[in-house]
Design a protein around this nucleic acid. Structure first.
Length: 562
RNA sequence: UGGGGAAUCGUUCAAUGGUAGGACAACGGACUCUGACUCCGUUUAUUAAGGUUCGAAUCCUUAUUCCCCAGCCA
């Protein structure tokens, strides 16, 4: 697995690490971790965190652990763990033998809780969830102390061990940190550390009926693993004092430093796990790997490359400002990668039949065509040419506007890599008046160069030979939502779904060579965009293509003015 | 409302008391057998008001706006 090359970016987190290294903090070590909860698939926002954490580890010759933060059995599963492992690996990162699970620490965490009780820093509270909420106070009023706050250490120990044994119903008791019910920071108002939950855990099965809360498990897991810099998102800033409070009391010899950065928001999509789950469960998309999803698995299926995603994550930078990154930056990164690496081929999406009247009936020529216009190392291929071809319906207009460089009555156009052809006449559908067949003539002298008389041919269009092409299904994907920020508070985000986010074309014709194109392989369909052979629906000899991203299209802008 | 954060081109990230810069986007143009790519050029920003200083995006003061926190989720 290739570790991506980092061009040593700089940001406020790396500044902190540089300082720590200078002052000899953490004995000069750098250890990070990527800690997802396995209750969903990871998305492009997680990719930002993955690139940050693994990128920092690589840059400072440190380590980055992959840790599954599986402290709430509800909704967690091995399927998600496997998907996360697959996705992080696919993104190009390697954690060696440092794959960890918070659930592996359950026994240790339990012992830490006992220690906290013994120190008088935690107590078993027998208030109900509702009562705890009522007594927590508000932003402006302090909370009330629990009547159980001053139970003796012995009683707390006894109760806590019986909680573990399963003697109590769910919710009957909790273990709470004894901090300060009057703290202006609500996180510090005696936060719950353990809850009783009779829910089988995907890894520990029925072994436990009490589970540690994030605030208790996360910081101690970090400390146990020797993490030096615990990088998380902004919403955990309020939790940092609690993080420090716990570690200070239980593993004072090693305190990781929590640093918060702004999570990624991307325009025209949604990056909240809860909402992504909703899309999947309501069937609004075709699954986690639907190519319209911002999940890593969806993007992979769509045809995005790990290189492009890493480039994107490097481009967006790291800061503490709330942000909404324009999806065009992501598209730019994909085009940049694919422009360099995707072989060119021709495929006609909406075919229009063209007969070249002066071309011999049974003649077939093999046209040598470059697989990449700037990189001859990518070689050439033979593309058959014959009397009947298909061109793109958009490349013919009966009454074209000014600046239209393609075919029309009285016009000439270059067939990509082949001859210049000239419009002669057309056959129209009697009912609709739409052209259904064009008749053209070709100029035999133009195969390898411009017309002899020096006339300028402006337009170049793509084509396939009718006799030699293969049928293909092509899916045109567009943004999932029709508004920039569908996730904005309050609204029902599903009403902003783009009804045209998927268009399936079933009568496309592609070059022969694509017949057995490898699933997952990338191509540029010349003049159209970048496409990827779908890994799920492609069957041998019958490729299905996903459009990754269209080519930039300056004609579309001009045409839009008419 | 208490607490915690953040405010710089349209969008983002930089500039760490000394020329406000990059990327994306947009808009022109050149090139072109992909209206692609590439190249060249242009437009646009320090939230506001005071203060300190030879000099302020940066330091101070006072406002303003936005985000996060009242799960036994993470």
């Amino acid at each position: 697995m290739s570790q991506p090359t980092t061009s040593n970016p700089t940001d406020f987190i790396r500044d902190i690490i540089d300082d720590d290294l200078r002052t000899g903090k953490h004995e000069g070590r750098v250890a990070t971790r990527f800690p997802p909860e396995p209750n969903g698939y990871i998305h492009i926002g997680h990719a930002k965190s993955v690139c940050l954490n693994f990128g920092i580890a690589a840059q400072y010759k440190g380590t980055c652990n992959l840790r599954l933060d599986d402290t709430d059995p509800l909704g967690e599963s091995m399927e998600y763990v496997e998907s996360i492992i697959r996705d992080v690996r696919w993104l190009g990162f390697d954690w060696g033998d440092r794959l960890f699970y918070a659930s592996d620490y359950f026994e240790k965490l339990y012992q830490f809780a006992v220690e906290l009780i013994k120190k008088g820093n935690a107590y078993v509270c027998s208030l109900s969830a509702d009562e705890v909420r009522e007594q927590r106070g508000t932003f402006t009023e302090p909370g009330k102390e629990s009547p159980y706050r001053n139970r003796s250490v012995e009683e707390n120990l006894d109760l806590f061990s019986r909680m573990r044994k399963g003697e109590f119903a769910d919710g009957a008791h909790t273990l709470r940190a004894k901090i300060d019910m009057a703290s202006p920071n609500i996180v510090l108002r005696d936060p719950v550390l353990y809850r009783i939950k009779r829910e089988p855990h995907y890894r520990t099965a029925e072994k436990w009926v009490i589970y540690p809360m994030y605030d208790f498990a996360h910081c101690l897991s970090d400390a146990l693993e020797g993490i030096t810099h615990s990088i998380c998102t902004l919403e955990f800033e309020n939790n940092r004092p609690l993080y420090d409070w716990i570690v200070e009391r239980l593993i004072p010899t090693h305190r990781p430093q929590q640093i918060e950065f702004a999570r990624l928001s991307l325009s025209y999509t949604i990056l909240s796990k809860r909402r992504l789950i909703e899309l999947v469960e309501k069937g609004l998309v075709q699954g986690w790997d639907d190519p319209r999803m911002p999940t890593v698995t969806g993007m992979r299926r769509r045809g995005y490359t790990p290189e492009a995603i890493r480039k994107f994550c490097a481009e967006i930078g790291v800061a503490k400002n709330d942000n909404l990154i324009d999806v065009s930056l992501l598209e730019h990164c994909v085009r940049e990668d694919l422009n360099e690496n995707a072989p060119r081929v021709m495929c006609v999406l909406r075919p229009l039949k063209v007969v070249i009247d002066n071309y011999p009936e049974n003649k077939v020529e093999q046209i040598e065509s470059a697989n990449h216009p700037q990189n001859s190392d990518m070689g050439t291929r033979q593309v058959p040419f014959s009397r009947v071809i298909y061109i793109e319906r958009d490349d013919f207009m009966e009454n074209p506007p000014k600046k239209y460089h393609r075919l029309g009555p009285g016009r000439e156009v270059r067939l990509r890599n082949a001859y210049v052809i000239k419009f002669e006449n057309m056959v129209k559908d009697e009912k609709t008046g739409e052209a259904i067949e064009l008749h053209c003539t070709y100029d035999p002298a133009t195969r390898n160069g411009p017309p002899a008389d020096g006339r300028k041919i402006q337009g170049v269009i793509h084509w396939v030979s009718a006799e030699h092409c293969i049928p293909a299904q092509v899916r045109l994907y567009d943004r999932l939502f029709s508004v920039q920020d569908p996730g904005r508070e309050g609204d029902d985000f599903t009403k902003y779904l783009n009804p045209n986010s998927l268009e399936t074309l079933t009568t496309c014709y592609a070059e022969q060579r694509l017949k057995d194109a490898a699933p997952g392989s990338h191509y540029q369909f010349e003049r159209l965009g970048y496409f990827c052979v779908d890994t799920k629906d492609t069957v041998a000899g019958k490729p299905v293509f996903n459009r990754i991203v269209p080519l930039r299209d300056s004609w579309a802008k001009i045409a839009g003015d008419y």
